[in-house]
């Protein structure tokens, strides 16, 4: 470079550093964005929400009486109290069946008093957040409002997240549910309590706890009905709740799972709480007068080692 080209040192440093900066920006950008979508699409695992190391508990405890909240309280206490399952500071998701735009009397959704009592019990033992959630079949806002569950849950100190405000993420699901999305807040929870209602269903004959997991799945879940028994057992193997609370306060005996007529609703006034989802479903089926042994999804769940379907082992408090 000749002397009279007048490139000062200052100018040289400036020019070279700006070139370096531009190069760094291009390189850094390329590194940052390279294959980014492939990395972002990682699937979330479904955690195991069970409490391990408990022994000597009955698989489930059932309580009967006119007050659904008292039934929940008595059954949970007989199982050792909520403190055994939920620790202070934990985030608890309560997953009732809020599938339909129906009133509580029509028994198409879980009884709001059962949900509210569970929220209160979780809050009492110090749960940081209690979230009540479901992916409804009808318009979610109407389902949560008319089922009475939004008001009851919020009144007891829970948040309500319905499908219109939920975030959906790909989850590590196997079998027929492969590729479906799951509500993000369910996967992020420390504890999950499954709160199905017992009712008639034309395909599986009865829908209780194992089938209730349909309600955390997103678009495309309809296809699971092609092999409902296998799909329901698979869901039970992937989603392992802390507790299953079976609501048989009112049982829809026909025209399920939507119902409508009060003539199809039978008042049973019972609630069962258990750690064994298969025993819970067997107990629920028995409340409808069905023989659990004759239900293929119960048998299939049993074969997968999800629990025993022994109704006699369920402790009845009366």
């Amino acid at each position: 470079m000749s002397r009279d080209s007048k490139l000062s040192r200052r100018e040289l440093v400036l020019r070279l550093s700006s070139t370096a900066l531009a190069g760094a920006a291009v390189g850094g950008g390329a590194c940052f964005f390279y294959d980014r979508r492939a990395r972002a699409a990682t699937v979330r695992p479904v955690p195991d929400w069970r409490v391990h190391g408990l022994s000597g508990l009955p698989p489930a405890v059932a309580a009967r009486g006119a007050d659904p909240a008292a039934n929940v309280r008595r059954a949970v206490d007989a199982l050792g109290g909520m403190g055994l399952f939920v620790k202070a500071g934990e985030v608890v998701v309560i997953k009732p069946n809020v599938g339909w735009d129906r009133l509580p009397e029509q028994a198409a959704n879980t009884d709001p008093q059962v949900v509210a009592e569970l929220v209160r019990l979780c809050r009492k033992v110090g749960a940081r957040r209690v979230i009540v959630t479901d992916n409804s079949c009808n318009d979610p806002r109407r389902c949560f409002a008319r089922s009475g569950i939004a008001a009851a849950a919020q009144g007891a100190g829970a948040e309500v997240i319905d499908a219109s405000s939920a975030v959906w993420v790909p989850a590590a699901l196997a079998g027929d549910a492969t590729g479906l999305e799951v509500m993000e807040h369910v996967l992020a929870a420390d504890r999950v309590i499954n709160v199905p209602v017992v009712k008639h269903h034309s395909l599986s004959r009865v829908t209780i706890g194992l089938k209730n997991w349909m309600g955390v799945l997103g678009q495309g879940r309809n296809r699971l009905h092609q092999s409902i028994h296998r799909a329901v057992a698979e869901l039970g193997a992937m989603f392992r709740p802390t507790l299953t609370v079976v609501d048989a306060t009112r049982v829809l005996m026909a025209n399920g799972p939507t119902g409508g007529s009060l003539g199809d609703v039978r008042s049973i006034g019972a609630v069962a709480v258990g750690t064994n989802p298969v025993a819970c479903d067997a107990w629920g089926a028995a409340q409808m007068g069905l023989d659990p042994a004759a239900l293929p999804f119960v048998a299939e769940a049993e074969q997968r080692g999800l629990g025993r379907s022994d109704v006699a082992a369920v402790k009845e408090l009366g």
Partner: peptide
């Protein structure tokens, strides 16, 4: 097997 339409019918 599939029963979704019947299941949804209100």
């Amino acid at each position: 097997p599939c029963i979704v339409c019947e299941e949804m019918c209100p």
